[in-house]
């Protein structure tokens, strides 16, 4: 094939990397588009709501804003796509289609997508994701999220990726291959678990305060922290209505305890995974622990993990620079590196 012809063809292809997350999903595309959306899908509850919203379907932040007028669905939970009802599956399909459409493919352009999903969803919900993508893309690859992160960071050897999301923490050890089941561990004690703990603790401490799960999630996202060796921490004061009157509440201790609730689970799985690796390379793996996902932003977590690895001989923990787009960027890198012949084979699926 002539070089010019090949170039013309490649110009007519849009590569998309999608990070399908429980709380947020992100898209990176070869045309420069980078967008994210809360992983929420809402349908107007009735004809009045539809008229008011002027839309048949609502995505992301708008679902929270208009939640009283919507039936809101969160398509992923605990690391897999919810499939209890037809509406659950429809929500997942619609979200995937919406994410790809956010990349703004041009008419006539071939769309090749790599979808990164939580490790278990990438195994159990492959068919559903593929069906959803097939309506809006010409071919797709479904990959586990920690792998897309490692690929994007070019840390494919003796690296341990800890992807802390809302539904799950996915731990994945990279040793120069596509991770197999034994290379990955999934914990359901993740961001949602912290929200749940915090909600319960605050309800117990401030029984007359009025707050919702969404408010608790927002406080966590803004202030989450883990104490390291009794290090001092400024007070975290939030405004919560009591009997309709905004009142200041100190949530420092509750937030610290809620965030720390995931640590015993994380510690155990991290150590199990390291111990399962080839002993000759365990030292190197401990020096290459990468925190990703929204949970990587918990202040003090990186230091806590490093301190915890000390009794194994020490280790180095780093945090991805852009947790929101690390997965989508890695997926886009995979999409771009996949040879045209392989994309042609995937088109036929």
């Amino acid at each position: 094939m002539l070089v010019a012809q090949r170039k013309k063809e490649s110009d007519n292809i849009l590569y998309i990397g999608v990070d399908l997350g429980t709380s947020r999903s992100a898209v990176s595309a070869s045309n420069g588009v980078r967008e994210w959306e809360r992983s929420l899908v809402g349908w107007p509850k009735d004809i009045i709501a539809k008229k008011f919203l002027k839309r048949d379907i609502v995505f992301g932040e708008a679902c929270l804003k208009h939640r009283l007028a919507l039936d809101v669905f969160r398509p992923l939970a605990a690391g897999v796509i919810k499939t209890g009802t037809d509406r659950d599956e429809e929500a997942a399909r619609t979200l995937v289609k919406h994410l790809i459409s956010m990349a703004k493919p041009e008419p006539g352009q071939s769309v090749y997508a790599v979808v990164g999903a939580p490790a278990e969803a990438s195994t159990f919900n492959k068919q559903l994701i593929r069906e959803a993508v097939s309506d809006v893309a010409d071919a797709c690859l479904i990959v586990s999220e920690p792998f897309t992160i490692a690929y994007g960071l070019e840390m494919l050897f003796n690296t341990l990726v800890v992807d802390i999301g809302a539904g799950t923490i996915d731990l994945c050890i990279m040793h120069g291959t596509v991770p197999a089941a034994e290379d990955q561990k999934t914990l359901v004690q993740a961001g949602d678990f912290i929200d749940q703990q915090l909600f319960e603790m605050l309800t117990e401490r401030y029984p007359s305060a009025q707050f919702t799960e969404t408010m608790v999630q927002r406080w966590k996202e803004e202030h989450a922290f883990v104490r390291v060796d009794g290090s001092p921490q400024d007070k975290i004061i939030v405004s919560i209505p009591v009997g309709g009157r905004p009142t200041s509440h100190d949530i420092t201790d509750e937030l610290s305890r809620a965030c720390s609730a995931i640590l015993p689970f994380l510690r155990e799985e991290l150590r199990t995974l390291i111990a399962s690796f080839d002993p000759e390379f365990q030292v190197e793996v401990r020096q290459n622990v990468v925190l990703a996902g929204g949970g990587s932003q918990i202040r003090g977590l990186r230091q806590w993990l490093e301190a915890d690895l000390a009794d194994l001989g020490g280790g180095h923990v780093s945090t991805v620079e852009d947790p929101l787009y690390a997965g989508a960027d890695g997926a886009l890198a995979i999409a771009r590196d996949t040879p045209a012949d392989d994309w042609d084979r995937l088109r036929t699926l």
Partner: peptide, 26 residues
Amino acid sequence: RLISDLVQNNMQPSRVVPRARGREAA
């Protein structure tokens, strides 16, 4: 090689591509 394995996995979703760990992979 990784992308080739990924494509293979996606073509045959249930098949695990055999691979080496640790030293063999290195």
